[in-house]
């Protein structure tokens, strides 16, 4: 019955998990984002490219409400996150995973405890199940032997892999990755790319990846957007971007190669 239909429910089900419109953000007098439009369908992996300082990491932080936008709309799973209360926001964040550029591991906890941290708070698992889950997650990123080490005892690349395991702990529907392959050796970077592809195929995770690794992005991303002067200047597949006559992008692709 039309009258009893909850407004927006159907729209929410069909809406892309991530829809960003006219997003603006400035820090003091420096305008970082100036009307960004971006969307990602369910199961799609979108790479965000751009020169350093163009606001790519800020965009990711805005998507999980770690920063507040000055203007614009961010809809995650149909919910306008700028209007959510803390409790509702946290319920939404449980369905999202975030990998920070430097890993951002809690340095007072071991590698295993870092991965266990979100599980301990949000997953109803027995101690044995939780331990098993932590080992599974660490083995997915090749860190199962380092569970008892402190973050200071492992390399930056290893910290990033543990950060990825932590981001995957609650089986998120949306994954936000800030430079997942930067600082990793080529073999590990390929393995991380393969893991992202696997997540995409098996669990239909929607993924936004900020990266400078254009070749990695080519293998595990469906679509690429290029940020330039605070806006998305190009949006398409790698082949489409390659054909672009945008001078910034041509230079970017040449330097990345």
């Amino acid at each position: 019955m039309e009258a009893s239909r909850q407004p927006g429910v159907e729209d929410q089900e069909h809406e892309a998990p991530i829809v960003v419109r006219g997003l603006q953000k400035a820090f003091g007098s420096q305008r970082v984002l100036n009307g960004v439009d971006l969307s990602a369908r369910k199961g799609e992996t979108v790479a965000v490219l751009g020169r350093s300082g163009t606001g790519k990491s800020v965009l990711l932080k805005l998507l999980i409400a770690l920063e507040q936008p000055d203007a614009g709309s961010i809809r995650i799973r149909g919910q306008e996150i700028t209007a959510l209360e803390r409790g509702e926001l946290n319920r939404l964040r449980i369905r999202m995973g975030f990998l920070f550029q430097q890993g951002a591991l809690y340095d007072s906890l071991t590698v295993g405890q870092n991965v266990e941290f979100p599980l301990r708070r949000h997953a109803k698992l027995s101690d044995a199940e939780r331990r098993r889950k932590v080992q599974d997650l660490l083995s997915q990123v090749g860190m199962e032997r380092d569970s008892g080490k402190m973050p200071s005892q492992i390399s930056g690349g290893m910290q990033k892999r543990v950060g990825l395991a932590r981001a995957l702990a609650l089986e998120p529907e949306i994954l936000l990755l800030d430079e997942p392959t930067a600082g990793l050796d080529p073999i590990t970077a390929t393995e991380i790319g393969r893991l992202i592809l696997e997540l995409q195929e098996k669990r239909k995770i929607t993924c936004i990846v900020v990266t400078h690794d254009i070749h990695g992005a080519k293998t595990f991303c469906d679509r690429m957007v290029f940020l330039e002067e605070g806006r998305v200047s190009l949006d398409g597949t790698f082949e489409e971007l390659k054909k672009s006559r945008n001078s910034f992008l041509i230079e970017f692709l040449r330097d990345a190669a």
């Binding site: 964040r93 449980i94 975030f98 809690y106 979100p118 708070r121």
Partner: peptide, 18 residues
Amino acid sequence: GSMQVTEQIDAMEASAVD
């Protein structure tokens, strides 16, 4: 302070922990 500048506090918020 060190947790703040190394984004550990952001990581905690992103994990839905206040």
